[in-house]
Every structure is written in C-alpha cells, then in structure tokens.
Design a protein around this nucleic acid. Structure first.
Lengths: 343, 343
DNA sequence: CTGAAAGCGCTTACAG
DNA sequence: CTGAAAGCGCTTACAG
C-alpha cells in the first residue's frame, strides 16, 4: 500500500477532545443534547485531525446507506460511446439533485437483459434505485414486477401508464404528440409520417404517436398505416426509417420523429433524396437535446425539463425510502419551434 | 418504513446450511480451504434465500470499498444541463471500465471551487478518485498537490505535463495540434486563427495551439498574435470569439478551434457574417463529439479514443490503489476529416 | 477443513 | 448533558 498517515477515527477525536467516543458521534450527528462548549472542543479536534466520519460504519449501524443508485440501461445493440444524449442530460440533473439532498449517487450502465433487479439494494449499497433507459417495455415490465414484489425502493423514468408496477415519472408524451400535431396541421401540413416504434413495446413513442394521431383525426385526416415506420432512438435507425418511408412511395409533407436522434437521421436521408427541409418536408423531433439546436436546419422539437425531472425523481425516491407514499407524475411537454418545421 | 422481508445475513445462511458463519464467509470469498460438499450446501442456501453479502460490512472489515469515485467538475458559470458532451462520453466509458473491473462508481459533479479534495476517499466511500473536467490549471494545481500530500489515490484526465502532481492520462494534444496544422497547410491555408485560451491556465488548449503553431513555423509562416482569441469550451464562447476575431479585421482562411463546441459556435458566427465554410474559411475542431458529425457542415476534428481512455484511467487508478507504481500516459490523437475543412 | 472469537468504526438505547 | 456497552454484518488470524 502507498504510505499514508492512517485515518483519524472518532476515538482519536474523543481522545483529543477529552470526551467519550459516544459524545463525538453525537456532535457529528447534530444531536441537541450536547453542551455547547463540549461541542466546540469536539469540532475543533475534528478540524485539526481533518476527521471525516466513516460512512460505511455509520451506514452499517443505521441501516441507511445515504446513497442512491442510478441504473442506466440500453439496448445491447447500442455502441458503447453512443449513449442517448437525453439520458446523459438526465444524469447530470440527477447527480445534482442527489447532491442537494445529501446523497451519493452510484452509477451503473446495464443491459436490459442483465439481472439488475435489486442487486444494488440487496447488497445494501444503495437505499433505492433510479431506473433510466429505453428498452422494450414488454420485457421490462416483469422485471419491474419483481422489484415491487421484493419491496425494492425504486422510481423509473418513462411512460406513466395505468396499472403500472411501481412509481414512474415521465413526460406527458401524449400531450407532446398533440402539440406536434397541432403545430404541423396549423402550418398546413396534411400528411404526417411518424418515425418510431408505435407499439406497446415502446409506450413513450406510442403515446407521442397517439397524441399526434388524435389531432389529425380531429382535423378530418384519415389514418394511413403506411406513414408509420418503426425505429428506435438513434441517428442510424432514423436514417433507415426515412429511407424505408421514401421507398414506400406514399406521399408526405411532414415527419414527426419519435426522438431528436431519429429526426436528425431522417433529415440526412431526406436531403440525400433531394428533398428540402422544411420546404418539401417539415420535420419535428422530441427531447430537445443540445444537438437539435446545432444541426441543419435547427430542429423543431418537444422540450422535456430534465432539471426538474431529476429533482422529482430523487425527491420521489427519497419519499419511498423514508416509508412514505409517492405518486407517479407527468411533466408538461413544451414545443420548441426552430427552422425544420418551416414555421 | 415500507414493508419488506428483512434481508438474509450470513448467519441465516450458516444456519440453513448447518455450518458456521465463518465458513459461509469463506465460501463467498472463494477461499480454497472449504470442502467441496460444504461449499455446495452453502451456495444452495445462498441461492434459496437470495442472499447478497453486505458490502458495507465487508468493506468496513477489509478496509477496501470496491468503489471508485468520479469527480466531474466544471466552471461555475456553466449552465446546469450544459455538460460538455466529451466528458459525458468519458463518463460512459469509465462506468463500463469500472464494471469490467468489478468496482462501483460513485459520480459527483463539483465546481472547481469546491472543497472536493479527498472528501470521498476520506469518508472511506471510495478507494480512489478519477478527476475529470476543464478548469483553470493554475487554480487546479495546488489542489492536486494537496491530494498528493494526503496520500490520496487519484488519476486525472487532462494535460500530461512534466513535474505534475500525481498521475495524469491525457490525449497527445500537441500531436493533435500538429495534425491539424499539417492538414490545413496541406490544403493551402496560410492564415490559421486559433480560438481557445492558449495560456498555461489551460494546458490542453495550449498544447493544441503550440502543435499547430510549430507546423506553421516550419512552413515559414510568421506567428500572428491577433489570430488567437481566448475561449473556453462552449458554443457561446466559440461564437463570441469568432465575432471578436472578425472584429479585429485580420485576414484568415482557416480556424482551428480548441474544441468542437467552440468550432460549432464559430461556424455560426462565420456564416452569419456571410462567409462560407469551408470555401472562405476552413474550420477544424477537437474532441470528435457526436454532434460534430451532424452539424453543418460536418466538422473536421481530432478524435480522442474515449473508450480506451476510460479503461486506462480505471486500470491506472486500480494500480495505485493496490500500492503499485503507475505512470502518466498520453493517448494518440487522430484526425477525422469531414467537410468543414474543405479537403 | 472448520469453528469460536476479535474487531472494523460507527450509533443509540440505557443508566446516571 | 455524558459515558459504558451492545451490536450492525462481515473477515480473518488463531486453534484445533
């Protein structure tokens, strides 16, 4: 081992301050039943020896880790470095929310196929779990059920559905879809293609689709199944989906992509095909990742307040950890208009 | 507290398997001195009770946390959600490297001004620290010195300098700068502006600058101080720096931006000013963030292998934690040519 | 190969 | 207001 002065313990502090170790602990825990002067002596010693309480020991004793775990999972096919920027931004906000609530954050990337249910909480490293990631909900759901069964404390980010196991926080995807539909219809577009899996396997995408669909129906536009092409959230899949759409020979004057990454890939395919965006085809995405401001043309999209989402996720989980009830909740969606929709 | 069956402990397992608690521990630690049949009985019990060893207790006993901490710090001015995408991609690769080495990762965002030195290791929550972030090196260096003094185990990502406190892993920024210079000169550009702080406060940017400078000098081009404008790594600062450059009235036919974010902001300013990229001005960035593929025009830049960097960071830190010597190391830079440089 | 026992560094009733 | 003591769940010399 590298040389280092061995760490001070509460016993060292007690010795130096001339009190018992128990008193040191009381001072550090902020107990009111300590004489002011005693407290000062202890605090001085803490300062001098640069003492920090050993969180493992205190956690072992109190049975509270003071730590939350974030499980970020992705489809196994995804490239290593290719994490969805949206989740990365969530990660930033969750980290900060944890700090505000004086908790540490353990981060782990997982594959949906992994046996992640409860590992962290079971080994007592974390008091609760935050689940974040895209993945097939049909595979996902039974895992959530097991988590509930085991009494694991967790919150997930994602679609907020009725009869869902556990507590979820998510964007109001349906309202977001409506916003997009209204925007596009308002701009005179009549044939809106949807790029993204619109089945119950991906309920977030599905809700976005339905929201937009409803607006079209209200406007008297008949549903056209050929205008929907499956895609998961990546530039590549967006590109391929747009190609496939083009190959079908159906006419369309707008594309609603289920995510910004899909939209960016779709724009590339459209331009390659000699179409102009937004003149020939208006394009709208979802997420408002940083890139959507800088791509060409800048992308009209739906903004989700990640800062608020992170705070809400942490707050909600902490409620659960402390034995209180907590509700699933939806965050409002907001349309951000940029050049790609031709407004 | 929420209801949940209380967790099984090693005592429960011992009871069920009809052995002592010590034997359970031996089996779980993989000790060779356990009879095969005994081992099986224990493992079966572990399975049945879904037992997981309490890492806090084992860590308290062994004095090893099995956890690494990642301290991501930024300038306090930065917007919450606006984390440099390059660091986010490093974070992904570090997380995975930790998993491969069976360690957990504690993540924390800090401000450079915070008193982050050693908090984590001092409270025994982590065995070592990974330091990641841009910041003024002149402010940063004394903190590194304190870390070394305290015997804290850490590795940082950043400039690899002689006489530097501690161990650093970084990209060969000087070679990267050379690559950019050679590319641009080879394309016939003669006046290369540099956007980025080129002082010892930001040694990574500085090395990139000097690498490019050297190539120009070798090509017989005199240094022109008016062609350098300070900027930290953000789109906004890139935009402002390019504006400032334009305002100076010096002629230039190329821009070397110290980071992709700066380059993207610079392109926006150049286009607004009626210049064409790359026809009038070739632009090259640094980092190869995902966005650089999708911006318009796609950005020529210098790629740093983040996947490898993460692995190296974790490996090196683990060496240190285990009491072995470890070296600072530089990763090769690689030029990625796209449209913005007009090649 | 296995068990009994000490101890890692805390927190918190229990007495006083 | 303070101290002595038990105990959180492990690991690992020490005996046998």
């Amino acid at each position: 081992m590298a040389l280092r002065k061995t760490k001070a313990t509460s016993v060292d502090i007690a010795h130096r301050a001339g009190v018992s170790q128990a008193t040191v602990s009381r001072v550090l825990r902020g107990s009111p039943l300590v004489n002011a002067e005693t407290r000062k002596r202890v605090l001085d010693a803490v300062q001098e020896l640069n003492y920090k309480v050993d969180r493992r020991a205190s956690s072992l004793r109190t049975q509270r880790a003071g730590t939350l775990a974030l499980l970020l999972f992705e489809d196994p096919t995804e490239d290593e470095s290719n994490i969805n920027p949206f989740f990365l931004s969530m990660l930033g906000s969750i980290t900060r929310a944890c700090a505000r609530h004086h908790h540490d954050l353990l981060v782990s990337f997982q594959q949906l196929s992994d046996d992640w249910h409860a590992d962290y909480e079971d080994s007592m490293k974390a008091d609760g779990l935050i689940l974040l990631g895209y993945g097939d909900y049909v595979d996902y759901r039974p895992k959530l059920e097991r988590l509930v069964e085991q009494g694991t404390h967790f919150v997930r980010w994602g679609a907020v559905l009725p009869d869902q196991p556990g507590v979820s926080i998510g964007c109001d995807n349906f309202a977001g879809g409506r916003l997009v539909g209204e925007h596009l219809i308002g701009l005179g577009r009549r044939s809106i293609a949807f790029l993204g899996d619109a089945s119950s396997h991906y309920p977030e995408f599905h809700a976005r689709y339905r929201g937009c669909e409803l607006v079209q129906r209200e406007a008297g536009i008949a549903e056209e199944p050929a205008l929907q092409v499956d895609a998961l959230s990546s530039e590549e899949e967006g590109y391929e989906a747009a190609k496939a759409l083009l190959g079908r020979g159906v006419l369309f004057d707008a594309v609603f992509a289920a995510s910004d990454l899909i939209a960016i890939g779709a724009i590339r395919a459209l331009l390659e095909h000699g179409l102009r965006v937004p003149e020939d085809v208006a394009v709208v995405g979802f997420d408002d990742i940083a890139m959507s401001r800088f791509c060409n043309p800048p992308l009209t999209t739906v903004y989700q307040d990640t800062a608020h989402a992170g705070e809400l996720l942490v707050e909600t989980l902490l409620k659960l950890v402390n034995g209180h009830a907590a509700q699933s909740q939806m965050l409002p969606a907001k349309l951000v208009v940029r050049r790609s929709s031709g407004a």
